[in-house]
């Protein structure tokens, strides 16, 4: 394994270097994961940077990122491996005449005819990789059971071929939006990390990191508003990525202040539901109108 991650502090710095300001616990868990070789289960509301953490880890450790996006009905053919039956068929046809069955049979179940899918790819790589299994809660429970072998022993059993052992140990991250309870068996094999929305101070740092040209007072104001919006009972609260988007939008528009007009114009970058728009416009927009309007005329 790489010797790059020696302490929690180093992890933190490395992540910051690749554009991800990790909280204390995120850095610590990432550090533990690389030291203990255990997968990490990352849970938290949508848009707190769960997926981004994996990407940043890959950048920080200079590893390749292999991503498996989960969805309902995902099966092993899409996640682990599949036999390339067209190629197998061709093979049989070209050699059918003069080769015995035994040789062909052995032949067509070789690695040459194996299509490796993300999980197999992740462990078969010579260089260690970061393996991201995104939104694991979207899959069925059966799929989780299938993951167990990969996650605990880093190997995959292929009936025709035998056990494929990992050539290198990947750093595995599983993310979940907590839309269903994951099985105990899966949880037991993972380290657990709960990511929440950052507090105002850290979010300000994040926004400043990604939109450094933005005026500091404006950024502060933006973060305040985003935090205020998150307090409301919305269908989809704004994510961190959206506050960064908003910062960039403001930059493009050359805004000097977030007043009511500007807010209404750019509101759609952070709020994306019809009913949410109304709530936010009503609750936050009015407040802005009062507060800043007063300042401006004064």
């Amino acid at each position: 394994m790489g010797s790059e991650l020696q302490s929690v502090e180093e992890v933190k710095e490395a992540l910051a270097g690749s554009g991800y300001l990790a909280g204390e616990s995120a850095a610590l868990v990432a550090f533990l994961a690389s030291r203990l070789g255990k997968p990490v289960l990352v849970e938290g509301p949508a848009g707190v940077g769960k997926t981004e953490l994996a990407k940043a880890l890959a950048r920080a450790t200079e590893r390749k990122l292999i991503r498996l996006q989960c969805y309902e009905g995902l099966d092993e053919a899409k996640a682990l491996y599949e036999w390339n039956y067209r190629k197998q068929l061709l093979r049989i046809q070209t050699e059918a005449a003069d080769t015995g069955w035994e040789t062909v049979k052995d032949d067509i179940f070789g690695e040459e005819f194996l299509l490796s899918r993300p999980l197999l790819q992740g462990i078969a790589e010579e260089e260690p990789v970061v393996l991201l299994i995104d939104e694991i809660d979207k899959t069925d429970q059966e799929f989780e059971a299938m993951l167990l072998e990969v996650l605990s022993d880093f190997q995959i059993s292929i009936p025709e071929l035998g056990v494929v052992k990992a050539k290198s140990q990947p750093l595995v991250l599983l993310t979940s939006n907590n839309s269903r309870e994951l099985t105990e068996a899966l949880k037991r094999r993972c380290l657990y990390l709960w990511l929440d929305y950052p507090d105002a101070k850290r979010e300000l740092e994040i926004v400043r990191l990604h939109a450094p040209e933005l005026d500091e007072t404006l950024a502060r104001r933006l973060v305040e508003i985003v935090q205020m919006v998150r307090q409301l009972d919305l269908k989809k609260p704004p994510s961190i990525a959206e506050s960064i988007d908003w910062a960039r939008a403001l930059l493009l528009l050359g805004a000097e202040d977030i007043d009511q007009e500007m807010f209404e114009k750019t509101l759609t970058t952070i709020v994306k539901h019809r009913s949410d728009l109304d709530t936010v416009a009503e609750r936050v927009g009015v407040k802005l109108g009062d507060g800043i309007g007063g300042l401006k005329t004064g």
């Binding site: 929690v8 610590l28 309870e181 949880k187 993972c190 380290l191 657990y192």
Partner: peptide, 29 residues
């Protein structure tokens, strides 16, 4: 796991100690 994790962090930092323990033991919110 908890024992293994605790060997990797410094015990003098209470936060680290606690987080390491939590990450290995508490698996839901």
């Amino acid at each position: 796991d908890a024992f293994a994790a605790l060997q990797e962090v410094s015990w003098t930092e209470q936060e680290d100690f606690k987080e390491a323990l939590a990450a290995t033991i508490a698996k839901s919110q």
